[in-house]
Each structure stands twice: as C-alpha cells, then as structure tokens.
Amino acid sequence: MKKVPYSVDAGLIGGAGLLIFICLAGVLAPWLAPHDPLAMDLSNRLSSPGWTYPFGTDHLGRCILSRIIYGIRISAVFAVLVMICTFLISLPVGLLTGYLRGRTDHLFMRFIDGMLAIPDIVLTIAIVGLLGPGFVNMAIAIILVRWANYVRFIRSLVLKVRKEDYILSARMSGNSHLRIMRRYILPEIFSPLAVFGALDTGKIVLAMAGLSFLGLGTQPPTPEWGIMLHDAAGYFQIAPHVMVFPGLAIMFFVFGCQLVSGRFSRRHTAAVKEV
C-alpha cells in the first residue's frame, strides 16, 4: 500500500477549529458567560439582542448567550460521551461477530436486523417513554438504539479486513485471535470508524435536541440546546432570535463534525484507491 501524504486542508482546519472553539467555550463557560444561565429577569422578557444581552433573552428573561455557552457542556460534551459509550458496547461485539462469525454472529445479526427494522426515533421515544423523561434516560435510550447501527458498521469493516491474506499470514505466525484483532484489524478499521464517529456525534446532538424539544430529554431549567428550542417554539413569531441562536449553535456543531469527518473520509478513500 502506498502511503498517502497527509495534507492539512481548509475543511479540516475549519472543522477542527470550530469544534475546538465550541469545546473551549464549554470548558470556560463560567468565565465567558455574561450572565447566570438560570437567572430570570421577567422585566426583560424576550428582549432583542443588545449590549447587555448579546443574543437577547428568552420568555423568562434569561440570557440566551449564557444558556448556549452552558448548553455546550450538556449538548456537545454528553454527545461525545454517548458516542464513546456506544463504541464501548459495539466495538467488542462488532469485532467478535465479524471476526469469529459462526452461529453467534448469525443470531446477533438477526436480532440487530429486527432492531433496525424499527425507525430510530420511534424506538428512542418508546424507550424514553418506558424509562421516563430525563437526561440520563435519554442518553441510555440513544445508546440502546444506536449500538446496533455501530455493530453493523464495525462488523462490515472487520469482515472486509479478515479476508485479507495478511490475517491468514498472521495466524500462521502464531498470533492469537485477540492479538490479531488488536494489532491488525483495529488499526485498519480505525480511520473509517473515526469518520463514522465524528459524523455521528453531530447526529447525536441533533437526536438529543429533538428529544428535548419533544419534552422527553433534558428537563427545564437545564440549559440545553434542544430544550431551548422547545421553550422558544411558542414565541418564534414575535421573537425569532430566541429560536435562531440555539438553532445556529446546533448547526455549527454538526457542521464542524461534518467537516472533520469529511476530511477523514476523503483521506481513507484516497488510501484505498492507492492500493
């Protein structure tokens, strides 16, 4: 395989810069937020953006900018955590089913086929409905629904790699199955997994925002981007900024994830073409 030189491009710099900026803003929230995100000021309800409140205030007079900055901690950071938890479940399952195959793989795949037959959002709502609304329950529901997608994806990558002659050759060199998975298969599937993970982090933020918007996720008064959209829905016609700014925050985060994953994806495709 010919090595493809890794050139840094505008998309990667832009995407990574955007994500780093958002994450830093979340970490430095107590210093960056101009107001307390939970402090209400009913005399300043739905005020337009200005010097005191750069993004204006919501229907309870809370500073929208401060709520968006504190919302990063929930929306972005927890999206990454949800993704990591999903990977922790699906990576071993995908690796083992794809590598070892056999009857267990067959049964797992039929179970996953059954799960995937139900639309994601319907299943998530059903699970949150069973567990009860709340942030942790929402995260559990998203993990329970998404792990099947991840297992399918990881398994498909492993199936492709395990057919390679160097895996056969590695077996003959006396390597254990575990070492082959760690030393040969994981490095090969890492790049497409990074693409998938980066892209999916954006989707998880959207899913969390969607569930919070439906009242099933984060509960008021927690500053979270989805619940902010939910609260603002009733005032969109008289004060559009209340909905626009949280919407833009979600859009920029998802856009950053897309840019980074797109760059990884192009690099991976180029490497495959060069073989």
Partner: peptide, 8 residues
Amino acid sequence: DSSSSLYP
C-alpha cells in the same frame, strides 16, 4: 500474492 500477505 506476497503484496497482500505482508501487513502494510
């Protein structure tokens, strides 16, 4: 195929 037998 020696190219595919050696881990790149």
